[in-house]
């Protein structure tokens, strides 16, 4: 690669950060203007909300709460991945397994997992276990579904060649089907991240013990509107950062895949 080509390539990887940054600024500006003019002082403006941030992030207890949420989400996400990906791949390669699991997926998909909280809390209490469980449930469905779609679409001839080379069944699943399905699995993961966030916030809102969702809704109940808006900002930032992190990982993992309209992987 020539120096010029390298330079344009670096520029191309650096520049994409700029428009979203501008978009953030534009949104904050719109909020500021709206709060100052149209809403007649009904909601705090962007500036005073941002000024509120150090108070929250600097407070030991709330910071610990927020980190607690992130920790739960990460663990729940990891557990969900660990069994959803193999299950989805397996479904994709066996019609019987697919026929067995699909209807169950269909009836559980539209059920809001966080809504199971009141029932699960009856069984496991209000602690970590319940919140983890609903996050695992929330994340696993889209991951299973997309891993299944990805594995189903794997080129049959690719598997024939692997077989001809003497590769065993499990090896084919791990070394051919898994990498070939990876782009599609990642689509499921992205949906999973968003669902994990939703589930995390609502489960904490329902259980009301710790976590970012707890701070948010407690502040709402106690009419601390500045805190409410500041927490919204924190959680939104969390969502955006997770999304960027995800894009980065995806770039690393599936740089070989056909370029797709990146922005556009179906997300919730």
């Amino acid at each position: 690669m020539t120096a010029a080509a390298l330079a344009t390539r670096t520029r191309a990887t650096l520049l994409p950060g700029l428009p979203p940054l501008l978009a953030c600024l534009a949104l904050l500006l719109a909020w500021q203007l709206y709060a100052r003019t149209l809403s007649m002082g009904g909601i705090p403006d962007a500036l005073s909300t941002i000024r509120e941030l150090p108070a929250i992030l600097g407070d030991r207890e709330s910071l610990a709460d927020i980190l607690d949420s992130i920790r739960r989400m990460a663990i729940g996400f990891a557990i969900a991945l660990a069994f959803s990906v193999p299950l989805g791949l397996f479904m994709g390669r066996s019609r019987t397994v697919a026929a067995m699991v699909n209807p169950l997926l269909m009836i559980t998909y539209p059920v809001p997992k966080a809504a199971l909280m009141p029932i699960i809390m009856l069984w496991f209490g209000v602690g970590d276990a319940s919140k983890l469980l609903v996050i695992v449930l929330g994340v696993s469905l889209p991951v299973i579904y997309h891993a299944y779609q990805g594995a189903r679409a794997v080129e049959e001839k690719m598997l024939w060649s692997a077989r001809a080379m003497g590769m065993s069944g499990p090896a084919r699943l791990a070394r051919i089907v898994l990498p070939a399905s990876l782009p599609e699995i990642l689509v499921g993961c992205r949906t999973g991240i968003v669902l994990a966030l939703i589930t995390m916030i609502t489960s904490e809102m329902i259980a009301r013990q710790t976590g970012a969702g707890n701070i948010l809704f407690n502040a709402l109940d106690m009419a601390q509107y500045e805190t409410v808006y500041a927490m919204i900002l924190v959680i939104s930032a969390l969502g955006i950062v997770l999304d960027m992190l995800f894009e980065y990982v995806r770039g690393l993992l599936t740089g070989w895949a056909e370029p797709r309209h990146d922005l556009l992987a179906p997300s919730l």
Binding site: L27, G42, I198, F217, Y225
Partner: peptide, 21 residues
């Protein structure tokens, strides 16, 4: 860029703001 920023925001977190306004 607007979609890039807004799509990953968990909308349920906006709900308190929606209630307030």
């Amino acid at each position: 860029p607007l979609v890039r920023v807004l799509a990953p925001v968990p909308k349920i977190a906006l709900y308190p703001a929606l209630i307030l306004s």
